[in-house]
Design a protein around this nucleic acid. Structure first.
Lengths: 351, 351
DNA sequence: TTTATTTACGCAATCGTTCCCGGTAACGTT
DNA sequence: AACGTTACCGGGAACGATTGCGTAAATAAA
């Protein structure tokens, strides 16, 4: 089944002109007389002519489409980011091709090849948690493909990046827990190699140190797939629960980890926050409905998508190679609800 | 910034062959000697040749990409559907361009024009709740564009469709409420003109009738934007609460409506299910964590996306115009949790 | 009136690929 | 020896649009 479109040739034939004249008339060239222009424009309008974007892409060596790779779109953070990406892209006449790595390195590489073979003009990426080897991205970048990283970035690759202040998000959340009387605070993080994991864990540890709390190494747990598989959360939570000293609160450092941890705690008949305090990164819009209402660190996902796309379009449309790159850092938002309120101990005054 | 790719011409020049020969060698034509083939294939591999899909699209008058229009990807049902769509599309070498109507007719039309102007080979659509005028889809379909509707379908347009048994979903949920002692059951639905709304409301009313419960016209409420705007849910819930006879349970007929209604009930300090029973359509993966755990009617979203894409690819790749169309209907899944359990009245035995 | 300039348009190449025609060997058949 | 096959390969026209260059006619300048 095909879908016959009207071409510039049809107009030329119908009006007894050459295709060049029609093309120039449509582009409002000074070389075309006003009468001819009027004639062409009116006829084009009448038969509903639209230039074939594929022919244009071939000629101009650009497709006006950008690729996006995230771990999964069913994650609120990413779907909100994509909203931001699309809003800017569409405004500038670009379309967006989305693909999901599902935290798998292999799928990320496949998607990468797929997208580049589809002649995209640029790429926005939040890397998969599995990925250790960034040579594919690096090579692509070196060959001139504009890339912007957001959320999970790659430090070694010199290009624009958009992140939130992950250190501060984890730091502030940990401080809140401490100042509310929690002392044995554990952290459950995504894959250890991710940029966001490193920054968040650093913030967590700094908050402990700044409050004179000795760090318990066994309290930092990592999930290789970021909680995409529930069993990996189950494992680390049970490890935490079966230690000599149990934590009295958990800091979950990822969207899936936050709800996943709560799920496991509930399955173990633990009451939050009475038996275990909980605070976590989340962009879900149902966290306030959850029992107990979740305390969260929320990211400005939509804005991150917008900014990343703005930066990418700058790279794409730049005449000269860009050598100066920037890393935009936005502020996370700490929202306190029931899950992080300590009802047993007295809150401790800020010190 | 551009990204220089190697073409068939480069291979031809390097090997002293014509482009035709190279092209044929790459496509494994019988007209090319095994030695030449080997030469070409090895060299192509070496310099990492990939055919330019844009040139191919121009030649073959197809882009190997399909468009998707849904109301919003941040909705679990749609993001899961898109997962299904992508899995089949990628498997068949198609890419997917997603766009969101946000329940707005205007944005739907814009997206439609955008997608068709980008030369997509086919379209998968769940229509916006605002849309009354389907002439754009109809015209496109008449001009030969393969379209598959899913979830919110358009009966008047003759093409493949994928839905769940919305009637039964609402019927079974209503029966459950009745058989558990609820009597004054209200329904909050999406826009009245949507196919899913009609079917679900019909199921709801049939269940009431089958149990000899007189229908209260004031108990059927509609939200023009399907709950995308919280205030519209707020309005209908307050209408329900301020009536002479208050409902004792609410059936929410949409993803956003289910969580939205709970949100409003909580804001009004009503306990679910003690003050008000609640059951609703939802594909969110946190419904069991919510207070109270939500009873839901869940759709096989992923499968729906898969099936819709299978059907679309059949249409696209069919040599002859297709005249026989089918409507695939899948079964919804009723999951009973706390929010629909009647603790005051005695359950009524099945009759 | 002749020459220069402007105006308005067409020709043809180009982007990367495929594919319809041809064409030329080498070989086999009578 | 003359012809038909077969095996291989190249030329060039598409696909739809843009654009540098050439040029005829119309106008202006000499």
């Amino acid at each position: 089944m095909k879908f016959e479109a009207v071409t510039i040739k049809d107009i030329a034939k119908a009006l007894g002109l050459s295709t060049s004249t029609v093309s120039r008339a449509l582009r409002d060239s000074y070389e075309i007389s006003p009468e001819t222009k009027k004639l062409v424009l009116e006829y084009a309008e009448k038969i509903n002519y639209h230039p074939n974007p594929i022919a244009l892409s071939l000629k101009e060596r650009r497709s006006r489409s950008i690729g996006v790779i995230v771990s999964e779109i069913a994650n609120s953070f990413f779907s909100q980011s994509i909203d931001g990406i699309e809003s800017i892209a569409y405004k500038n006449g670009y379309n967006v091709i989305i693909s999901q790595s599902r935290e798998s390195f292999e799928r990320e590489v496949i998607n990468l090849h797929y997208l580049t073979s589809r002649s995209i003009d640029g790429l926005i990426v939040s890397v998969a948690s599995e990925t250790k080897d960034f040579s594919n991205f690096k090579e692509l970048n070196d060959r001139g493909m504009p890339i912007v990283f957001f959320d999970r970035i790659v430090h070694d690759i010199n290009t624009h990046k958009v992140i939130i202040d992950n250190y501060r998000g984890a730091y502030d959340a940990t401080c809140y827990l401490i100042e509310n009387g929690f002392r044995q605070i554990a952290a459950i993080a995504n894959n250890e190699i991710l940029s966001i994991t490193k920054d968040r864990i650093a913030g967590y540890k700094a908050a402990l140190a700044d409050h004179g709390i000795k760090e318990n190494e066994a309290f930092s747990k990592y999930c290789a797939h970021g909680g995409l598989i529930l069993s990996e959360i189950e494992l680390v939570v049970s490890e935490l629960l079966n230690q000599e000293t149990r934590p009295d609160a958990i800091l979950a450092l990822g969207d899936k980890l936050t709800t996943g941890t709560l799920r496991i705690l509930k399955a173990n008949d633990l009451k939050v926050p009475d038996d275990m305090g909980l605070i976590g990164f989340s962009n879900s819009d149902t966290t306030e409905l959850i029992e107990p209402p979740l305390s969260i660190i929320k990211q400005p996902a939509f804005e991150m998508g917008e900014i990343a796309t703005d930066l990418l379009l700058q790279l794409i449309e730049s005449k000269r190679p860009v050598t100066e790159f920037e890393t935009k850092m936005l502020a996370p938002q700490l929202i306190i609800r029931e899950s992080a309120k300590n009802k047993k101990n007295k809150p401790i005054p800020l010190g």
